[in-house]
């Protein structure tokens, strides 16, 4: 019974769509989170060609009987729509107004504490904190994953001396007590769908250690807003209606399996006497 395979393939893909919706809902309060939308795609068709020759005439379609074999998840596309602004008035909370990502770097140290390289990631999460980084000998801005915010050259922004009255201009220029210490880089990614999601609200920037971000990306014209955070772009109503949709699709396919099962039972009972 091909019908069982068709419906179970569909159940599997519907399950994955549900996983996507569940992850969106779980991250509804994650700062800078971008939701994903699952979309389905058809599987290949089987073609049966053993048909009576008399059938060649009087038909509307080309010869052969083609029956599809179910569905699968085609794409889970990233929805880059902006989230709403959440005003926090915390000076180290930043929000990108427009297209682009912050580039954060994670220095990699060996056992002796010497830096052996860096890994670069993109994030829309602008909740940064100030801490003193002893290895760099300066104050840095880091996010919840411990990664350091970088400037327009991909170098961590370092603040010397006591951090006092930190200001970030819409262009990203950071001033500490009136002295400019660097400009935050906001990078435009042409095709965010190609970025690998690495968890912790970050995407792999695919830059080798020491590689300048200019070699792959360009700066975005987006403005930075200080004292605000970007809420996730998950829309509760939309996710709930997707949930209903997915649940009904699951039930319909489960019902199709039940019917196929009943048909097999009927075939089995041919020899019941």
């Amino acid at each position: 019974m091909q019908s069982l395979n068709i419906s179970s393939a569909a159940l599997r893909s519907v399950q994955q769509a549900l996983d996507t919706t569940a992850n969106n809902l779980a991250n509804i309060d994650t700062v800078g989170f971008k939701r994903r939308t699952a979309s389905f795609s058809e599987l290949l068709s089987d073609s049966l060609n053993e048909q009576p020759a008399a059938d060649r005439q009087q038909r509307s379609t080309p010869p052969g009987l083609r029956i599809g074999s179910g569905a699968r998840i085609g794409l889970t596309k990233l929805d880059m729509a902006p989230g709403s602004a959440r005003i926090t008035d915390v000076p180290t909370d930043l929000m990108i107004e427009g297209e682009g990502f912050f580039l954060v770097s994670r220095p990699l140290y060996d056992n002796n504490g010497t830096m052996v390289g860096e890994s670069y990631r993109f994030t829309r999460n602008g909740a940064f904190q100030v801490r003193f980084e002893a290895k760099l000998g300066a104050y840095v801005l880091h996010n919840a994953a411990g990664d350091l915010l970088t400037d327009t050259d991909g170098v961590p922004i370092m603040i010397n001396g006591p951090v006092r009255n930190l200001q970030v201009s819409p262009e990203g220029v950071v001033t500490n007590d009136g002295t400019a210490v660097g400009q935050i880089g906001v990078w435009k990614v042409l095709n965010p769908d190609q970025l690998t999601q690495v968890g912790e609200n970050e995407y792999d920037a695919e830059l080798a250690s020491g590689m300048t971000p200019y070699s792959k990306y360009e700066l975005s014209a987006a403005k930075i807003r200080q004292g605000a955070l970007e809420a996730s772009n998950v829309n509760l109503q939309e996710e709930m209606s997707q949930l209903v949709n997915v649940q009904r699709a699951y039930q319909l396919n489960a019902r199709a399996i039940a019917i196929a099962d009943q048909m097999m039972g009927i075939a089995n009972s041919l020899r019941s006497r």
Binding site: S3, I6, S7, A9, A10, V14, A17, S39, F40, S41, E42, I67, G68, S69, G70, A71, G74, N245, V246, A249, L252, N253, A256, A260
Partner: peptide
């Protein structure tokens, strides 16, 4: 069954 499987395609 294939029509139902592709109800969201």
């Amino acid at each position: 069954a294939n029509n139902l499987a592709n109800i969201n395609t």
